[in-house]
Design a protein around this nucleic acid. Structure first.
Lengths: 208, 208
DNA sequence: AAAAAGAACGAACGATCGTGCTATTTTCGA
DNA sequence: TCGAAAATAGCACGATCGTTCGTTCTTTTT
């Protein structure tokens, strides 16, 4: 866990720097993050900040991983406490919506996905891996619901996972540009419609 | 129209610069666009490029508007030639998917939406206005389909427009990070499912 | 209290940023 | 063909970028 009290002074300030960096990256993206501005925000010297990360890229990577950890803490892990199947899937969506509320103006993970999807290097690899992993997590939750008989047996998990993920992208988009509450309404309504559409006995999954 | 042959030399080189700038912005975003790199890409001097736009911000605005024009040309205007209602709505989605194919690694409009949603200034205003306008355009197409009886009378256009837009966001996301063809499959399958779900006689729109 | 280790600072580097100003070149009508 | 006008190049500016290095301050250990 990252929020445990660090034992060494070094780890403590590193955590402090990362918190500030995370907030800055929410607005300007990881590419817009500069060491000078970060140092001024934290209240220390440029070189002092720099010394905690061997390079700017390592700083960006650390911020990215910090974001991923927060996402897991707020969205995934609480959902894992619920029983497999629909309850867990619902919890994932509910937690994710709340995540979008808090990070309304800029989710670092989504921003990073847009920034590094066309490039190469460690940041691209990290982003791709994280996104693929999370998508698979959703697929798993869907699969459990199918096995429980809460979703139609002909449900294509990858298809439904795509549609759920799309709804969340729409949520983040509309929440940032327009109104969070309305975006939330649309998202949850769309999700419920998905559950009905993929529900058992309707025979309208997407397996050929 | 932007692709007509410009009469003056000035307009011609401006167009050339914008084409290069557009391609650069697709990879690095409008915030990552620098005049020096652009000049080198075009093959002229920094000041030569700069002279065509009073400032960097004006350059970004011009690139943004060029992107919007291309989007209208490729997605909206061809669809307007089809009859109102479901055919036009289908054409919008089909053209949009092809747009995503071509601009697979970076749609300037979506990237810009992410870059400027949390800031202020002309770029933010332009992005917001464009996004709102396009969403309303989709709503109109849905409304026509409802009036034609091709969608349920209780359909909430804003809700369906949100879900369609969300699918396109998912398409761009997955096409950039994973595989376009699979993303396209998921998008079109999701869209067809939406049409069934909101179809006439099913009585499952979203009006309370 | 003295010594060793660790953390932050301050200055400077070369590079690039956006933006002016002044030449020089290119274009085009008379 | 020549001169006016437009278009581009060249140069310089202050600022900031990421990074390096040597020094100073703080903490810990002996």
């Amino acid at each position: 866990m990252s929020t445990i009290t660090p034992t060494t002074k070094r780890a403590a300030t590193r955590e402090l720097i990362l918190e500030h960096a995370y907030d800055l990256a929410r607005r300007d993206g990881l590419e817009g993050l500069s060491i000078g501005a970060l140092a001024q925000d934290v209240g220390m010297s440029k070189s002092g900040v720099f010394a905690h990360f061997g390079s700017r890229e390592d700083l960006q990577l650390a911020v990215l991983e910090a974001g991923q950890l927060r996402f897991l803490q707020q969205v995934k892990w609480p959902a894992l406490k619920l029983p497999r199947g629909l309850p867990r899937l619902r919890a994932i969506v509910a937690n994710w919506v709340e995540w979008a509320r808090e990070y309304r103006s800029g989710c670092v993970l989504l921003t990073a996905a847009g920034e590094y999807d066309g490039r190469e290097g460690p940041l691209h690899d990290n982003v791709t891996q994280q996104q693929a992993g999370w998508r698979q997590e959703i697929c798993r939750a869907i699969q459990h619901a199918v096995e429980n008989g809460e979703l139609g047996a002909d449900t294509d998990p990858a298809q439904l996972a795509f549609e759920i993920y799309a709804l969340m992208l729409g949520l983040h988009h509309d929440a940032a540009l327009f109104c969070f509450n309305e975006a939330r309404r649309h998202t949850l309504a769309g999700f419920e419609r998905l559950l009905v559409s993929y529900g058992p006995g309707t025979g309208q999954g997407n397996k050929p």
